[in-house]
Write a protein that binds this DNA or RNA. Structure first.
Lengths: 179, 179
DNA sequence: GTCTATACCGCGATAGAC
DNA sequence: GTCTATCGCGGTATAGAC
């Protein structure tokens, strides 16, 4: 198992942060390098081009998502409740990774969209095992809609603030859909 | 009431199509002009800069959304059912306009996000009048989630195909949430 | 392994002919 | 009203010093 240099992770962190805070278009190599505290040349030593940088970020997303799937399947309150609760921004590594990747999916990045589809499918399977296949997609889409509206509202900052009441509404809805 | 030139509308149509099919970053003035069958100079005669082009597109969105709100409030099957049904891509002018604007909201375009918030609020009000304030957001978010997943799946093409069954699931869920 | 310097290209926008 | 030509900027990527 090869140990990756710290500078590499710092660059990945910086890339995620910029995707989240300023969007895909402004997350340039220059900006990433500056934020990570390396030169552009130094960045391009670790990641030969921008696609390689993106690929590494998506790898990390898959890793974190895998851990979340494990937690979700073991959640005592049930997968559906766990899913709705964690649809709200909490600043976790997975949140950041997911949101950053979402910026790429939005601009039609093919591989980012493929990963998303895979993760969604795993979530759907667990929710279906919890609330039944009939209503699983309803639950999944509610969580996704919450996520989407928080995005439109203007970034992750506002998520924690005003959306807590929404979570309670959705949890009540989930209870009505169970069975 | 001033008549707008046809070339103007052709440019707006081309801009929307490109936003939808190739994303915000690739919807450049060059690409729009080529698709609309005019030169870049010709385009910039009608819209002095890119912001003006965006502003005109958002105007059209508001107009179409207003018409939809009117239809929704008069829908015999109820606002909630109408909303879920029309969350699926049908290729209508509103669908195209909404999806195109969504590409801008995704890259943090401030005005696009403001318009979205307004439209969402109007939808929410009508749904609340139909199913009650308690469950209105659950219904709204289900529709939004359906929309979001169709996006991730890779553009509007696939929407019509595989998601029809999802609509039926969501409509059944709405019935359970009514009251 | 990380830096500086630079090549190269495509974007938005302007100027002016027709 | 629509065109061609061109500028300036900022993006990705490369070359080569240290």
């Amino acid at each position: 198992m090869p140990r990756k240099p710290v500078a590499r992770d710092a660059v990945l962190d910086a890339f995620e942060e910029l995707l989240i805070s300023v969007g895909e278009r402004a997350a340039t190599l220059d900006a990433v390098a500056k934020r990570a505290g390396v030169s552009k040349g130094g960045l391009l030593y670790h990641f030969p081009n921008k696609e390689a940088l993106i690929a590494a970020m998506l790898e990390r997303l898959d890793l974190l998502a895998g851990e979340d799937i494990a937690l979700m399947s073991a959640a005592p309150e049930g997968a559906a409740t766990y899913f709705i609760r964690t649809s709200l921004w909490s600043g976790s590594p997975l949140d950041r990774s997911f949101l950053a990747a979402s910026r790429l999916a939005e601009v039609a990045h093919v591989e980012a969209r493929r990963r998303f589809a895979g993760i969604q499918q795993q979530w759907l399977d667990l929710i279906a095992a919890d609330v039944g296949t009939g209503m699983a997609k309803a639950v999944l889409y509610m969580g996704d809609g919450l996520y989407l509206n928080a995005m439109w509202e203007g970034g992750p900052a506002s998520k924690t603030d005003g959306r807590q009441g929404d979570v309670e509404v959705l949890l009540a809805a989930v209870e009505r859909l169970r069975g």
